[in-house]
Amino acid sequence: MATVIVSLVVFGAVAFVIGKGIYNRVHRKGGGCSCGGGCSGCPGSCLCHPEK
């Protein structure tokens, strides 16, 4: 019984982390820009500086 409970807790934590990552990607949150500010050729510049 303890194995089932621990497995459910671990599965729930993994599902939460994956779900949070998908939510952040859809809503363009997090990630940050580590390119140092020279974003003209950066493929991730739309994440750092989204169009308004």
Rank of each mutant, 00 (worst) to 15 (best):
R25I: 06
R28N: 13
V14A: 15
C46W: 15
G36I: 09
G21E: 12
V26Q: 10
G38L: 09
G12Q: 03
C33S: 08
S7Y: 09
M1A: 13
V17M: 11
I5T: 13
C33T: 10
E51S: 11
S45A: 15
G36Y: 09
V26A: 14
V6D: 07
A13F: 02
R28I: 11
S34M: 01
T3A: 14
R28S: 08
S34L: 05
K29A: 01
G36H: 06
V14R: 00
G38I: 00
G36C: 09
G32W: 08
G38W: 00
L47A: 11
I22A: 09
P43R: 11
N24W: 09
G37E: 05
I22P: 00
V9H: 03
V4M: 10
V17P: 03
L8N: 14
G37S: 10
M1C: 09
I22V: 15
S7F: 13
G21H: 12
C48W: 00
V10C: 12
C48L: 00
N24P: 04
K29P: 02
K29F: 01
V17Y: 12
G38T: 01
C35T: 05
V26I: 15
S34D: 10
G37M: 06
P43G: 12
G37R: 00
C35K: 02
K52Q: 07
G21V: 07
G44M: 11
S7E: 02
V26L: 15
C46P: 00
M1Y: 14
S7N: 11
P50Y: 10
V6F: 08
H49M: 00
C33H: 07
R25F: 13
V4S: 11
G31H: 11
V10S: 11
L8P: 00
T3G: 10
L8F: 13
I22D: 00
G12I: 07
G36A: 07
K29E: 10
L8K: 08
P50H: 12
G12P: 02
H49D: 06
V9Y: 06
G44V: 04
V6Q: 14
S34Q: 08
C42N: 03
V4C: 04
G30K: 02
V26G: 02
C48E: 01
S45H: 06
G41N: 13
V17F: 12
V6N: 03
C48Y: 02
V9E: 11
R25T: 06
S45Y: 05
G44E: 08
S34Y: 08
V9Q: 12
I18R: 10
K52H: 05
R28E: 04
G36E: 06
G41R: 02
G44F: 08
K29G: 05
V4F: 11
V4H: 08
V9M: 10
Y23K: 07
V26K: 14
A2G: 14
F11C: 12
C42L: 05
C46N: 13
I22N: 01
C48P: 05
G41F: 05
H49V: 04
K20Y: 14
H27M: 06
R25C: 04
